[in-house]
Simulated scan of single mutants.
Amino acid sequence: MKKNDYQVCFGLAVRKQRNNRNLTQEELASLCDLDRTYIGSIERGERNVSLVNIHKIASALDIEVKELFE
C-alpha cells in the first residue's frame, strides 16, 4: 500500500464516522478545534494527519482511535 492509500483509507473512515453521527464537516471541525478545510482535506486523503489530531477527531466522534483504522 502506498503512503497516500493510507491517507485515503483514513479519510474515508473519518467521513463514514462523521456521516454516521449526522455531523457536517464544520460541526466536526468545531468539536475538534480544527479548521473545516482541514477536515475536508483529511477526508479527501490529502493530509498526513498527526497523532494529536487523530486523537482529537476520535474524541470528537466519541470513538476509540482504533475505529478509524478498521
Rank of each mutant, 00 (worst) to 15 (best):
Ile57His: 10
Leu12Trp: 08
Gln25Arg: 00
Asp62Met: 11
Ser30Cys: 10
Leu12Cys: 10
Asp5Lys: 07
Lys66Asn: 05
Glu43Trp: 00
Ala29His: 00
Leu12Phe: 09
Asp35Pro: 04
Ala60Lys: 08
Ala60Val: 05
Leu51Arg: 08
Leu12Gln: 13
Asn22Glu: 12
Arg15Ala: 10
Val49Arg: 08
Phe10Asp: 01
Asn48Ala: 08
Lys16Phe: 07
Ala60Phe: 09
Ile39Asn: 00
Tyr6Glu: 12
Val65His: 05
Thr24Arg: 02
Val65Trp: 00
Glu27Phe: 02
Cys9Ile: 14
Asp5Phe: 06
Glu46Arg: 05
Val52Thr: 14
Ala13Ser: 14
Asp5Ile: 12
Leu61Pro: 04
Phe10Ile: 06
Ser41Phe: 07
Tyr6Ala: 10
Leu31Gly: 08
Lys3Phe: 12
Asn53Pro: 06
Ser59Arg: 11
Cys32Asp: 02
Asp5Met: 03
Ser50Pro: 08
Tyr6Leu: 14
Asp5Thr: 14
Glu67Gly: 04
Asn20Ser: 03
Gly40Tyr: 01
Cys32Arg: 03
Asn53Tyr: 12
Lys2Thr: 13
Ala13Asn: 15
Ser50Met: 06
Leu23Gln: 07
Leu34Gln: 10
Cys32Val: 01
Gly40Glu: 09
Val8Asn: 06
Lys2Asp: 14
Gly11Met: 02
Leu68Ala: 08
Cys9Val: 14
Cys32Ile: 08
Asn4Tyr: 13
Asn53His: 15
Ser30Pro: 07
Leu28Cys: 03
Leu12Lys: 15
Glu67Phe: 05
Lys66Asp: 11
Ile39Ala: 00
Lys16Gln: 12
Ala58Leu: 05
Ile54Leu: 11
Leu61Tyr: 02
Ser41Leu: 15
Asn22Ala: 11
Asn53Thr: 13
Leu12Ala: 12
Asn22Cys: 10
Ser50Thr: 15
Glu27Gln: 15
Arg44Gly: 03
Asp33Arg: 11
His55Thr: 14
Gly40Arg: 07
Tyr38Val: 01
Leu51Pro: 09
Thr37His: 05
Ile42Tyr: 00
Lys3Val: 10
Glu64Pro: 04
Arg36Met: 01
Glu43Lys: 02
Leu28Lys: 07
Phe69Asp: 04
Gln25Leu: 07
Ser59Asn: 15
Ser50Cys: 02
Leu28Asp: 04
Phe10Arg: 06
Tyr6Pro: 05
Asn19Val: 13
Arg36Gln: 02
Leu34Cys: 08
Leu61Glu: 06
Ser30Trp: 07
Phe10Asn: 02
Met1Pro: 11
Asn20Tyr: 11
Asn19Gln: 14
Phe10Tyr: 01
Ser41Gln: 15
Asp33Lys: 13
Asn53Trp: 04
Arg36Asp: 00
Leu34Trp: 06
Ala60Ile: 05
Arg47Ser: 07
Gln7Asp: 09
Thr37Asn: 14
Leu28Thr: 10
Ile42Gln: 00
Leu34Asp: 03
Asn53Glu: 10
Val49Gly: 02
Leu23Val: 07
Leu68Gly: 01
Cys32Ala: 12
Leu12Glu: 11
Leu68Tyr: 00
Glu46Tyr: 00
Val65Leu: 10
Met1Cys: 03
Cys9Gln: 14
Arg44Val: 01
Val65Asp: 04
Gln17Met: 13
Cys9Lys: 14
